[in-house]
Structures are given as C-alpha cells and as structure tokens.
Simulated scan of single mutants.
Amino acid sequence: MTRDRSFLRDNGLTLAFGAGFLLTLAGQAIAGHAEFNNRLIAEELHPLSFGGYLLTSDFAVDVTENWQSEYLQFFLYIFGTVWLLQRGSPESKELHKAGPESDEEQKVGEHARPESPRWAGVGGARQAWYSRSLGTLMCVLFLLSWFAQSVTGVAAYNEEHLRELQAPIGWFDYLGAADFWSRTLQNWQSELLAVGSMAIFSVYLRQRGSPESKPVGSAHGATGVEG
C-alpha cells in the first residue's frame, strides 16, 4: 500500500466527514442565498450577490446556531457518560465503571505506559487538565459558537426589523428575545433526542461492523461492548 493510500485509510473517517461538511455548507449557502434574495425581492429590495450573502449576518447566524448545538451535544455526552449509564448500550460504560475510574484503569501517573501521551504521566495540574481536555474543548467551542450565534443573531434580527421600519434592539435585550431562544432550543431538543434515541435503540438493534453497535450476537443486556 502506498503512503498516500495509507494516509487515506488511516484518516478516512475525518476526511469523509470533513468533505461532507464542506459540501453541505456550500449547499446551505446556495439555498440560503436563493431564499434570502426571494425575501428581498418580495420586499421590493435589490438582491445580493452570492459573495455578499456570505458576509451577511443571516448566513452567519444559520451556521453558528447549528454549530453550537452540535458542540453542546458532544460536551454533554462526553461529561454525562462519565457518570450516567444505560444497561445494554454500547454508548455506555460497563455498569460497575461509573465515575472517573482509577489511575490504573485510566493509565495515568505511575500507571502510564511508554506509548501513553506525555501529560498522562506527569501528574499535577497538567495531568488533571489533560484528563478532561476533550470535554473542555467541546465546552469552549460550544460557548464560542453560542456567543457567535447571539452576535450574528441580533444583527440579523435588527436588519429584518429595520427593513420593516422597526427600532433595533441591543445585544443584552436580544438574549431575552423569543427569536434567540427559539433558534437555540429548537436545536437543543433535536440533539438531546438524537443522543437519547441512539443510547436506547442500540440496546436492541445492531449494525454489523460498526463500533457504535454491539456485535450482532451480543445479548441485549451486554453493556459497554462494541462491535
């Protein structure tokens, strides 16, 4: 196998989803541009170019409101599954492993191995941070994208109101507005539903060859077993 083929094989999941992300983002931009211009024409205003649309708050808020909900999903899932269990689900740890687990189980400190990440064995604050770095990053990305949604959202909200000759509102006022919470909660509820559904459906249903599923022949009650 050549080096290029080996790279593609070893990184196929990231590359495939990254490409899918770019394609769907482009599709969203094209569809959003058409919808935005339809609204402008209906209001007897001049339509925008595609490049101009990409710089609008209307496009930015649609993108960021989806990003924040996705990162919230992963943040809650990563931290929640430390303690929360689901009997029979491969999405759950084994029932006797609730909590952060021992240093030996996590291979940190004196139990770190030669191939372990360097900060797994250093102890102190660096090890404590690295032990929670994935969830911390998801939390930071969620907060940043939620903040971006609020900034772009108030700009889009005010642009629409100005076209209707209504007074704009400030950022703090927008945080309490129905528009902000409608955008936010419609995404949160769908993410929570998806995660909860995956946790319980994977107890009884199988997908051969997927690490998100138990082996086809595993008992329904087998927990923390991946195919």
Rank of each mutant, 00 (worst) to 15 (best):
Met1Gly: 13
Arg3Met: 10
Arg3Ile: 09
Asp4Ser: 11
Arg5His: 13
Leu8Ile: 13
Gly12Ser: 13
Leu15Ile: 15
Phe17Asp: 00
Gly18Glu: 03
Gly20Ala: 12
Phe21Arg: 00
Phe21Lys: 01
Leu22His: 00
Leu22Gly: 05
Leu23Asp: 00
Leu25Arg: 00
Leu25Gly: 01
Ala26Arg: 07
Gln28Gly: 10
Ala29Leu: 10
Ala29Val: 03
His33Asn: 12
His33Lys: 12
Glu35Gln: 15
Glu35Lys: 15
Glu35Cys: 11
Phe36Leu: 12
Asn37Ala: 04
Ile41Tyr: 07
Glu44Val: 08
Leu45Thr: 10
Ser49Tyr: 02
Gly52Thr: 01
Tyr53Met: 02
Leu55Gly: 14
Ser57Tyr: 09
Phe59Leu: 04
Ala60Lys: 12
Ala60Asp: 05
Val61Lys: 14
Glu65Val: 14
Glu65Arg: 15
Glu65Pro: 01
Glu65Asp: 12
Asn66Glu: 03
Trp67Ser: 09
Trp67Thr: 07
Trp67Asn: 08
Gln68Lys: 10
Gln68Glu: 08
Ser69Val: 12
Tyr71Met: 15
Tyr71Pro: 03
Tyr71Trp: 14
Tyr71Lys: 12
Tyr77Cys: 13
Ile78Lys: 08
Phe79Cys: 05
Phe79Tyr: 03
Gly80Phe: 08
Trp83Cys: 06
Gln86Cys: 13
Gln86Asp: 03
Arg87Cys: 03
Arg87Asn: 04
Arg87Gln: 10
Ser89Val: 06
Glu94Asp: 10
Glu94Phe: 11
Lys97Ala: 15
Ala98Gly: 10
Ala98Met: 07
Pro100Ala: 12
Pro100Asp: 01
Pro100Glu: 06
Glu101Val: 14
Asp103Thr: 09
Val108Gly: 10
Val108Asp: 03
Gly109Asn: 10
Glu110Gly: 11
His111Leu: 13
His111Ala: 14
Ala112Val: 09
Arg113Thr: 12
Pro114Thr: 04
Pro114Phe: 07
Ser116Glu: 02
Arg118Gln: 14
Trp119Phe: 06
Ala120Tyr: 03
Val122Asn: 03
Gly123Phe: 00
Gly123Lys: 04
Arg126Asp: 01
Arg126Gly: 05
Gln127Ile: 02
Gln127Asn: 05
Ala128Asp: 09
Ala128Glu: 06
Tyr130Met: 10
Ser133Arg: 06
Gly135Cys: 00
Cys139His: 11
Cys139Thr: 07
Phe142Leu: 07
Leu143Ala: 14
Ser145Trp: 03
Trp146Asn: 15
Trp146Tyr: 14
Phe147Gln: 06
Ala148Leu: 09
Ser150Lys: 10
Val151Gln: 12
Val154Leu: 07
Val154Ile: 06
Ala155Arg: 09
Ala156Asn: 14
Asn158Cys: 07
Glu159Pro: 02
Glu159His: 13
Arg163Pro: 00
Gln166Ser: 01
Phe172Pro: 02
Asp173Phe: 00
Asp173Asn: 09
Asp173Ser: 11
Leu175Asn: 02
Leu175Asp: 02
Ala177Trp: 01
Asp179Tyr: 04
Phe180Tyr: 11
Trp181Asn: 05
Trp181Tyr: 02
Asn187Cys: 05
Ile200Tyr: 02
Ile200His: 02
Phe201Asn: 00
Val203Tyr: 04
Tyr204Ala: 14
Gln207Cys: 14
Gly209Lys: 06
Ser210Thr: 07
Lys214Ile: 08
Lys214Met: 08
Val216Thr: 08
Gly217Thr: 09
Gly217Phe: 04
Ala219Gln: 08
Gly221Leu: 07
Ala222Phe: 03
Val225Tyr: 08
Val225Gln: 05
Gly227Gln: 11
